[in-house]
Amino acid sequence: MTDYDMDAPLTAIRRLMLESNGIITIAFRRAFIEKGIGKPNGDIGQDSYDISNNWMTSPYSHIEPAMAFQIGLPILIFREDGVIAEGILEQGVTGLYMPEFNLDKQINYFDTLEWTQVIGKWEGHVRSVVQNKGCPPKLY
C-alpha cells in the first residue's frame, strides 16, 4: 500500500505535503555526466562551467523539498557526494544545514554527533509544526 494516488504526481505530492509535518529528502546519485558543460552557449570561464564527472539526482529531490519549503514545513536534505549542488541542493538555499554523505566510506553516519545534532534540530522544528497545527490561524 502506498500514500500515492492515481492523480498527477504533483497533485499527489501536494496532498502528501499538506498531510505531513516535515520532510527528509535523500538526493542519491542517479545520472552520471561523463562530459558536460553548464550554460553551453558561453565560453568556458565566462557564463559556462564544466559539469563533467558529476552526478545528477532525481528531479523529485528538488521538487518535493521545494514544495515543503513553500508551505513552511521543516526540511532536511542529505546530498550524496558528487551530486551537483544546484537548485534547492545548493548549500544555504533553504537556510538549513545540508549534510553530505559518501556511500563508498565505511562510516556509520547515524553514530556521529553531527547526525544527533542535525536530526535533533529538525525534530524540534517538526514538533513546532505539530503544535502550531492545533492552534487557530493568526491574521498578523
Rank of each mutant, 00 (worst) to 15 (best):
V129W: 00
R127W: 10
Y49W: 13
I51A: 01
E123C: 04
D7T: 11
M6P: 03
P59Y: 01
Q117S: 10
C135E: 14
K121D: 14
M1T: 15
F69K: 10
D3V: 15
E90I: 05
Q70V: 10
L16F: 03
I107T: 15
T94P: 03
Q46W: 08
D47Q: 11
P65M: 04
Y109L: 15
L18N: 11
G22S: 12
Q46C: 08
L76E: 03
P40L: 04
N53E: 15
G36I: 02
S128K: 15
K121H: 13
I13S: 02
I23M: 12
S52G: 09
W115M: 07
L89K: 01
E34Q: 14
Q46N: 11
I24H: 01
E64Y: 02
R29H: 05
V130H: 02
G92R: 15
R79S: 04
D47V: 03
I24S: 00
D5F: 07
I44L: 15
Q117C: 04
V83T: 00
D47Y: 08
R29F: 05
K121A: 10
V118T: 09
K39C: 09
P40M: 06
A31G: 02
F32Y: 15
I51T: 03
L103C: 12
K39H: 14
V126S: 09
T112M: 09
G124L: 07
L73Q: 05
I75T: 12
T116N: 08
D43W: 11
G134L: 11
T116R: 14
E34K: 13
D7S: 13
L18T: 07
N21L: 02
P136R: 07
E123F: 07
A66C: 07
E80S: 03
R127V: 04
N41S: 12
I77C: 01
D5E: 14
S58A: 12
E64W: 01
K133C: 05
I26T: 11
C135I: 13
F32M: 12
K105W: 06
N108T: 15
Q46E: 14
K138L: 15
W115K: 00
I77R: 00
A8N: 13
G42Y: 11
Q106H: 12
I44F: 13
A27D: 03
R14F: 06
M98G: 01
P40V: 03
P99R: 01
L89R: 01
T112Q: 10
F28I: 04
E100P: 00
P137F: 08
L139T: 10
I107H: 09
T11F: 05
T112E: 12
S52Q: 10
D81V: 05
T57K: 00
I44A: 09
Q70A: 15
T94C: 08
K35V: 09
I23S: 06
E86T: 10
D104C: 05
L16Q: 06
S48H: 02
T116M: 08
G45A: 10
T2M: 12
D81C: 07
S61R: 00
I88E: 01
L113W: 07
S128T: 15
E86I: 04
V126Y: 04
H62T: 05
I37D: 02
N21S: 13
N102W: 06
F32D: 11
I77G: 00
V130P: 00
E80H: 02
F78T: 01
S52V: 08
M6V: 12
G45Y: 09
L73D: 02
Q70M: 15
E34C: 09
I33C: 10
A68N: 03
A66D: 10
P99T: 03
R79F: 00
V118E: 00
E90C: 05
I107Q: 11
F32E: 14
